[in-house]
């Protein structure tokens, strides 16, 4: 089900040196405020530091500049540089708060997608269509999208740089994030809250497509694939984010490598051992905590419900072929 929907490069690459391309015009206030404060800061900072250097040079020891005979108490100045910054910061607060409200209060008509954060991938579920996807979130353009998010293990954070939005994904609680994409394209999803070994590879793609393509995507994803099993398995290895923890080249990652796994004797943390047959592989996918290979942590999430029966078979066939 690799999405052939968008071919262009990630829109993270575009934009100026400083910001990724803004994908939602309504969030323009954020960028404007940022640059406003940036340039005011540059101006004020240059003025303050410039005055400091100027005074430092003018009144350097031994210079001929005249020094005042008596010290001014400067009450007026003290009041001025207390009140003016106060007014400035409070006015930018109002601006930022209004923008913030707009960006967190979801519109009532939003199309809802369920997001589950797991170590270390994102799972997206379209409740109406009965479709589940991993790491690729496909949504229609020009539509309000609301994500209802929760985590299965630790705290993650769903970060959409192009939309200037971010929200932590918590275990035992639902948080939400909404957005509205103005243009089609491929956008980056990051996990922004540190969540362990795979934190930096817990990446996803937001694929914004036309309504038509979105419908086709859902229809195709809910149908059973008729691809040859090992090929399907290879695709699943990528699309279900197995590669985050398991290599296919023999080197150990967070989990054991999958190379030459089938038929080999496995030793487990509880001291038992077993030949890796088809049922062992199935169990490892669906109940990974049942047997943990020696030297590894029991951190793998279950794929129960994430894989259809044919996909499980495809996965096993693919693993058999890895020699």
């Amino acid at each position: 089900m690799a999405p052939p929907l968008v071919t262009n490069e990630s829109l993270m690459h575009l934009g100026d040196l400083w910001f990724p391309t803004l994908a939602e015009k309504a969030m323009g206030g954020v960028d404007l405020l940022y640059w406003g404060i940036f340039w005011v800061s540059v101006g004020l900072g240059a003025a303050i530091f410039g005055v400091a250097v100027y005074l430092g040079m003018k009144y350097r020891r031994g210079s001929a500049a005249a020094r005042p005979e008596s010290e001014h108490q400067g009450m007026a100045m003290e009041v001025a540089w207390t009140v003016i910054p106060l007014v400035l910061v409070l006015s930018v607060f109002v601006w930022s708060f209004l923008d913030h409200l707009r960006s967190v209060v979801p519109p009532a008509d939003a199309y809802e997608v369920r997001v589950l954060g797991k170590k270390w991938f994102w799972q997206f579920e379209y409740p109406q269509a009965g479709v589940t996807a991993i790491n690729d979130l496909v949504v229609p353009v020009n539509r309000n999208i609301k994500l209802n998010m929760s985590s299965e293990d630790v705290i993650h954070s769903f970060f959409l740089p192009n939309f200037r939005r971010k929200k932590d994904v918590l275990p035992n609680r639902t948080t939400s994030l909404w957005f509205h994409a103005d243009r089609e394209g491929k956008y980056q999803i990051f996990c922004a809250e540190y969540c362990g070994d795979g934190h930096s590879v817990m990446l996803g793609n937001l694929l914004v497509v036309s309504q038509e393509a979105f419908d086709q995507y859902l229809a195709k994803a809910s149908a059973t694939s008729d691809e040859p099993l090992p090929q399907l398995g290879k695709k699943l290895y990528q699309s279900k984010a197995c590669f985050t923890c398991h290599t296919v080249d023999g080197s150990a990652g967070t989990g054991p490598s999958l190379l030459g796994l089938y038929g080999k004797k496995r030793r487990f943390a509880d001291g038992s051992s077993l030949d890796a047959d088809e049922n062992y592989l199935r169990e490892s996918l669906l109940v990974p905590a049942a047997r943990v290979v020696q030297g590894f942590q029991p951190v793998m999430p279950t794929y129960q419900g994430l894989l259809k029966e044919r996909e499980i078979t495809a996965m096993i066939e693919y693993l058999k072929g890895l020699k």
């Binding site: 405020l33 004020l44 303050i48 200037r164």
Partner: peptide
Amino acid sequence: LIGGFTGIILALLSLDVHLHDT
């Protein structure tokens, strides 16, 4: 001065949401 001015940027809700944890 730079630390302080960027602190103001981060104190503001709408900007911090983008910049938080970056």
